[in-house]
Design a protein around this nucleic acid. Structure first.
Lengths: 127, 127
DNA sequence: GGCATATATTTGCTTAAGCGAATATGAGGC
DNA sequence: GCCTCATATTCGCTTAAGCAAATATATGCC
């Protein structure tokens, strides 16, 4: 219980969860959108993984992260409340908007057909 | 946002919030029920105060703590989800039960008319 | 095999959190 | 005023978290 809140008690992790919420997202987008060092992103993703909040799937060179459906009902409701709260935050909105128009450019500005596009996760699409 | 979660990311603070949830509680009950050192309890109460989650009221020698209604809607929903989640936890249930039958005995086993009884807070009674 | 890209982990450091023990404050009773 | 009780705060310490920089792992391409 306290561990769940600890996982949520960091601005970077909240931004990551906000982006992951509902869809599967490639790490390169996190780095691009948050504009933070790659090791930092990776470290926080590892934290979220250890906390059982997200899981990763490898696809070639890319790693895709998605939410883990919470078995514990209490954890699920808290996580839902947290994600809902992020919905109205200015920066979180901006982050999501950037992800929506993300077009495969982690490093170079144009990198045709390079990075995989974020894909929706059926079990988490609610709107 | 992250600050709110940090405030919730400690077992002692969760136990305190669980006891405060809905009623006004005297510090002596926290010490009695949690069976932890008084400075520790006081330190965590100060943390919750600084986080804007609880507020204190002095009544003679005793300090009574109660929840602060959250102005921010997001914070309110998260706090509500957290308190609801605590409802089903074994230890939290036991803590609340102890508070329910608390009978004015912070130190000595019987201390007639000594400590004030916990009082319900109108704005927070929901059941 | 070697090289490049994407991601993860380690290293060394700094800062914050939590703790118990001791001390301070504030109120009531004498 | 002094003493006691209830609570708060400070002190010194230990442990964990966060960071940037460097390094390691894994995949794909040649």
């Amino acid at each position: 219980m306290a561990g769940l809140f600890a996982a949520l008690a960091d601005p970077t992790r909240l931004r990551l969860l906000n982006l992951i919420g509902g869809r599967e997202v490639c790490v390169c987008y996190f780095v691009e959108i948050l504009r933070q060092g790659q090791p930092k992103i990776s470290r926080h993703l590892a934290y979220l993984r250890r906390a059982g909040l997200v899981t990763a799937r490898r696809e070639g060179k890319w790693m895709h992260y998605r939410m883990v459906p919470q078995a514990d009902e209490a954890a699920a409701s808290i996580l839902a409340a947290a994600l809902a709260a992020l919905k109205n935050d200015r920066q979180m909105e901006a982050d999501r908007a950037k992800l929506d128009r993300a077009c495969c450019a982690p490093q170079k500005l144009v990198m045709p057909e390079g990075a995989p596009r974020p894909a929706p996760v059926a079990s988490l699409v609610e709107s």
